[in-house]
């Protein structure tokens, strides 16, 4: 098979849950002197190992709190793993929390440049693709209105259009199809499917088993931060369905 594009190697993420929240200097010094700070640790992910080959479409399944979002955050680089390592090759496009980088005072057009910069695009690239983004988002004349006046659907449409204008090698999807109206949903599905055809590698998180089956060829099942099953999508989905029942 193809070369490995994502390698997750014995990754663990530990969160500290201090029993009392110490967030000011006075309490910190007093408690430190009295040795009263005690942290309970909690492993959101523990010893997670898997690798994804080029062109694979991997579904990540699990109940709430299984560590799915934490895993995506570690892979996209937002969160650093406490132990283990993650190696990714190629341009990564995280379609999580679309439009999280928007500035509310800025207009849609200004936000295209800002959000594009946040995703690490160059200025020339955004300039070149500007019209394409505006067209795809179907915002029309609203593109020059401050984003604070946008509806949530409009924000998502703009965010999706900016994030998908690149041709990424790795696409991370977190229930993005659940947004926008039916028409835009179809359009965005079409766009994502077109990327699949070009051999993009996909990580897909969803609770919708049918969707996972239709998109993915492999799957990983997480439970309480550890992998309980991985392999062919149908096999893993069967295990997951059993667990849900």
């Amino acid at each position: 098979m193809g070369k490995v594009v994502i390698r997750v190697d014995h990754v663990g993420v530990k969160f500290l849950m201090s029993s009392q929240k110490v967030d000011n200097l006075k309490e910190f010094i007093i408690k430190k002197l009295n040795r009263q700070i005690d942290y309970k640790s909690f492993w959101a992910l523990k010893d997670v190992t898997f690798s994804v080959e080029e062109g694979d479409r991997v579904g990540i399944l699990g109940l709430n709190g299984a560590g799915k979002s934490t895993l995506l955050k570690v892979i996209s680089g937002v969160l650093k793993a406490t132990e283990g390592s993650v190696i990714t090759k190629g341009r990564l496009a995280p379609l999580l929390e679309l439009g999280a980088g928007f500035d509310m005072q800025y207009t849609g057009a200004e936000n295209i440049y800002l959000y594009g910069a946040v995703l690490g695009y160059s200025k020339d690239f955004i300039k070149e693709k500007f019209q394409e983004i505006v067209d795809f988002s179907e915002l029309g004349e609203f593109i020059n209105v401050p984003v604070k006046n946008y509806s949530s659907g409009m924000k998502t449409r703009l965010g999706f259009s900016i994030a998908t204008v690149v041709e990424p090698q790795i696409l991370i999807l977190d229930e993005v199809f659940a947004v926008g109206d039916a028409k835009f949903r179809k359009k965005s599905e079409k766009k994502v499917k077109a990327m699949f055809k070009q051999g993009v590698t996909v990580l897909f998180v969803s609770h919708n088993i049918e969707q996972v089956k239709s998109i993915c060829n492999k799957a990983i099942l997480l439970e309480k931060g550890t992998i309980v099953a991985q392999g062919d999508v149908d096999d893993v989905c069967k295990i997951y369905e059993k667990k849900v029942k």
Partner: peptide, 9 residues
Amino acid sequence: SQMIKKVYV
């Protein structure tokens, strides 16, 4: 913080 929690920069 909203940005830092969601996108790597």
